[in-house]
Amino acid sequence: MESAIIIEKSIFIFTIFAITMLAAMYSTWAERKVAAWLQDRIGPNRAGPLGLLQPLADGMKLFSKEEFLPNTPNKFLFVVGPAISMSVALMTSAVIPWGDKLVIGGHEVILQATDIDVSILYVFGVLSVGVYGIMIGGWASNNKFSLMSAMRASSQMISYEVAMGLSLIALLMMSGTLSLKEISEQQAGMNWNVFYQPLGFIIFLVCSFAETNRTPFDLAECEAELIGGYHTEYSSMRMGFYLFAEYASMFISSTILSVLYFGGYNYPGMGWAIEHWGVNAGNLIGVAVLFIKICAFIFFFMWVRWTIPRFRYDQLMRLGWQGLIPLAIANIVITGLVMVRHELAAALGF
């Protein structure tokens, strides 16, 4: 029994790992295609049909490039930096409910690697550790520009983590649980949290842009001021890891956004589909629906990137500390008032 669970979970984790990697790979392709589409160009079209083999070609190129080590006293930390970024970007997927459950030969398979009691906090813990990859890499490069942009990136991530956490508190007050699985189940039908927490959703969305270092918050790599950002000194696959981690975390952010606010794997008529087409078909449609939502969010990330110009650093900090955090706190107060409105009305004598 024990080993059966271990094998089942291992297969599941490998599948998730492969899907995340594939999604990150094809996000780079999609990014170029979307950029080209928005700018009225064609985009990559040489490697394979529609340029679909372009990510493979890029990977081959990155692997075969010369690995250059700068003159730094911390060679080990220099290598560790991108590894931390990459593993952190992949770790979050462990607690995400990708679907409800499948029944294979009378045995229930839950489509989630692990359902821990504190999954949202786990996501935040992993996010907060993600700063280390950037900081250690930027510092170990032994380059002032790398260090400066590492500072920028990490102070941005720390500042927006605060607003992100506060915006989530209002959601948690409503759901009363920290488990992503239970939050998904509560949103069955069209009870999506985005309808109850529109302000919280907007704050969370802005913060996830900042957390993934995407435009308009990609100050860490503003080319004109800081060369290539914290990965200036990196080359070949080490730089590839940093770039890849950005796309992987974009995929994970989109997943968390869809699970928390857009109903996760729920879709209207899910109960009917399970009743008439069987548990497996109904839940597989749920997984597909979740992936459609994720793709929509990834497209949104790209759309914003090619539409909005980059913020200035002081604007970014002002938005985070003076705009989003007070808004998030106001959101918590409003949510609390709405939740106790009946008791409040009774106490006031209405």
């Binding site: 504190v118 813990g125 996010l127 990490s154």
Partner: peptide, 16 residues
């Protein structure tokens, strides 16, 4: 809970 909060507070905030 304690483990995750420990990581968030100490590793994620203070040590950074």
């Amino acid at each position: 809970f304690l483990a995750v909060v420990h990581i968030i507070v100490y590793s994620g905030a203070i040590m950074i």
